[in-house]
């Protein structure tokens, strides 16, 4: 093989044109640098932070479980809120999911269903909790309502997506017998999505348990309020105890949920 002039080769740019990549990366890096600059972090502040961290850590250890009663009440309230809201969320969420599944309802209904889901998803549970606290007063009721509404954004969304992927043949077969829309739902749709409903319910409970530990910050009940008060009163050893308990609840909840979901499938 005679050697012609050595050919060159550059890898094709994933951006289409070779100059786009560097420009994009420069822009991203410039943005991040500006971000860091806007934080106004200076060495003195970092040094103060470290020394303060030392003080706080010294106060926090060992964690104090002295006020166990308050702690247990908060934890139990969180669990109750999570459980009740999951129950109500499922009862409310199933119809919403059906209304938001493109393959079982007409277009205008579908649009309405999706709107409910989008609204329920968008606002962080803390914002929703503030509104409910204003509406029904401080306490776990506001928290339960918050989490129930939250279900419409998670449970309903995923269930609607599941309904949209079901086997059309089975629906057709039921419809061919002359069944009404409602009967088609019960005989053609429900059996196909039931395992998913059970799995999602457990998953939703796990998520609600996590959320129930924080919405107390704005007065919506649960262990979060206890934690926030402990921080506000500089009771760092009690705060650490609460934190450890929260981590434990979350881990146990996750494990229970994982095992239960595995058994359902």
């Amino acid at each position: 093989m005679t050697a012609t002039a050595a050919r060159t080769w550059r890898p094709p740019s994933p951006w289409g044109r070779p100059w786009v990549g560097p420009v994009v990366w420069t822009a991203i890096i410039a943005f991040l640098v500006w971000n860091v600059a806007s934080l106004q972090v200076d060495p003195a502040r970092i040094a103060r932070g470290f020394s303060r961290f030392g003080t706080v850590a010294a106060k926090a250890f060992p964690p104090s479980f002295e006020r166990f009663g308050i702690l247990a009440t908060g934890v139990w309230e969180s669990i109750e809120m999570a459980t009740l809201s999951t129950l109500f969320g499922v009862l409310l969420g199933i119809p919403v999911a059906v209304l938001a599944a493109r393959n079982v309802v007409p277009l205008p209904v579908y649009a309405g269903g999706r709107l409910v889901i989008t609204l329920a998803r968008t606002f962080h549970e803390l914002i929703v909790a503030i509104i409910f606290v204003k509406a029904v007063g401080f306490g776990p009721l506001a928290g339960t309502l918050t989490l129930t509404l939250n279900s419409l954004g998670f449970f309903s969304k995923l269930l609607a997506e599941q309904i949209e992927t079901i086997d059309r043949g089975q629906i057709e077969a039921i419809r061919a017998t002359g069944a009404s829309r409602a009967k088609v739902l019960i005989y053609g749709v429900l059996p196909q999505v039931l395992p998913r409903i059970v799995g999602l319910t457990i998953y939703q409970w796990d998520i609600h348990l996590r959320q129930s530990t924080i919405i107390g910050i704005v007065g919506a009940g649960g262990i979060g309020a206890t934690l926030y008060n402990a921080f506000a009163r500089y009771d760092y050893d009690f705060a650490l105890a609460i934190l450890l308990v929260i981590v434990a609840i979350v881990l146990v909840g996750e494990a229970v949920s994982a095992i239960a979901r595995k058994r359902v499938q």
């Binding site: 093989m1 050697a3 050595a6 050919r7 060159t8 080769w9």
Partner: peptide
């Protein structure tokens, strides 16, 4: 190196 690229083409 150019030689490697040439070899790859060949």
């Amino acid at each position: 190196p150019p030689d490697d690229i040439e070899a790859a083409f060949v």
